[in-house]
Nucleic acid binder design. Structure first.
Lengths: 151, 151
DNA sequence: GTAATTTCTAAACCTAACTTTAGGTCAAGA
DNA sequence: TCTTGACCTAAAGTTAGGTTTAGAAATTAC
C-alpha cells in the first residue's frame, strides 16, 4: 500500500477518533475534500488527520461547522499545510476564545451583584440585554430579571 | 383588572422579551406552572417574570432546560420566592459558570503551545483528549492533531 | 476463489429548543 | 353586539450536528 494511495475512511476514523459517518458529514459540509480511488471509495491525505483534529478542537472552542470551514479556508489549497500555516489560522481561534472567556467572566462577575444583590430591580443590571441575546432578534428591549422595582 | 387575575401570556411575553410559543414550551418542560382562568387561558404571577428571566440567564450560562428545572426546584413552592431564595439557587449557577470558565482558560492557554508550537506531534499535547470529548464515548484514545511526528 | 470486511449512496431518524400552522375559542373595546 | 385581537391545542416544521438503516459494490483475508 503505497503512500500515494492515501488513507481509507475507516483508517482516518481510527486515527482521529471520529465516526465514519461524521467524516462523511464533514465532507458534505465542505470541511474536508478527499479524492476517490478506482472503485469510488474515499481516500485521504495524511495531513487530513491534522485537519480533522483542528475541526474537533475548534468545536470545543464553540465554533460552528460553517465558522470552522471559514477558518480552514485560510489554509493553502495547493500544498500540504506547514506548521506556520496552522499557526496562522490558529490566531483567529485564539481571538474567538478570548472573546468568549471575557463574556463569561463578565457574566460571572455580575451574577452576585445582580441575582444575588437583593434588589432584583434591573434594567440597571449588567445581565440586562447581554450580547448574544441582543443580536439574536429584534423584538425590542429585554428586561432580564426585569420586574418593576416594587415587584 | 385586579392583581389576583394575573398576567396573560402575551403580557408575560412582552415583559420578558420571550416569544409566546417559548413560554408555552417552557411550561411543557416543567419550568413554569401557570393557572387557568375561567375561559381556559393561562394566567401568570408577577413573580414568574423573574422566574423566566432566571431561565434566560441560566441558558446563557450554558445550562440545558432540564438542568434549569433542577435548579429552580430549589425555590420554595408554597410562596413567592424572596431575594434570599434567588440568592441561594444562584450559588449553583456560579459554580457551573466557574467550571466552564476554567475549562476555556485551560484550552486557551494550551492553544499557542499546541497548534501554534510547530511540533504538532501530539499525544503530548494538552488538547489531547479533553474532558468533554473523553466522556462522550468509549471508542478508544483520541489523537487530536494526532499525526505521527514525521507526518 | 470465496468469505468477511469495508465502503458506497440515499434517505430516514435523533435531540434540543423552539417556531409555525391550522382550525377554533375567548376577551375587550366601540 | 359585533368585531378584532389574543389565546387555545395538536401536530408538523426548523436548525445543528450527527447516527442509523438498507441494499449494493469494492476490498481484504484466508
Amino acid at each position: 500500500m503505497a503512500v500515494s494511495e492515501g488513507l481509507a475512511i475507516g483508517a482516518l476514523a481510527r486515527r482521529t477518533g471520529l465516526a465514519v459517518s461524521a467524516i462523511r458529514y464533514y465532507e458534505a459540509q465542505g470541511l474536508i475534500t478527499p479524492w476517490r480511488n478506482a472503485g469510488g471509495q474515499r481516500r485521504y491525505q495524511r495531513a487530513d488527520i491534522r485537519r480533522l483534529s483542528f475541526v474537533m478542537i475548534a468545536q470545543q472552542f464553540g465554533l460552528s461547522l460553517p465558522e470552522i470551514r471559514e477558518v480552514l479556508s485560510g489554509l493553502p489549497g495547493n500544498r500540504t499545510p506547514t506548521p506556520q500555516d496552522w499557526k496562522n489560522i490558529s490566531k483567529g481561534l485564539r481571538a474567538h476564545l478570548d472573546q468568549r472567556i471575557d463574556t463569561l467572566i463578565r457574566l460571572r462577575d455580575n451574577l452576585d451583584g445582580c441575582i444575588g444583590c437583593g434588589c432584583l430591580s434591573l434594567p440597571k443590571c449588567a445581565l440586562y440585554n447581554p450580547d448574544d441575546r441582543a443580536k439574536s432578534n429584534g423584538s425590542g428591549p429585554r428586561y432580564l430579571m426585569g420586574d418593576t422595582p416594587e415587584g
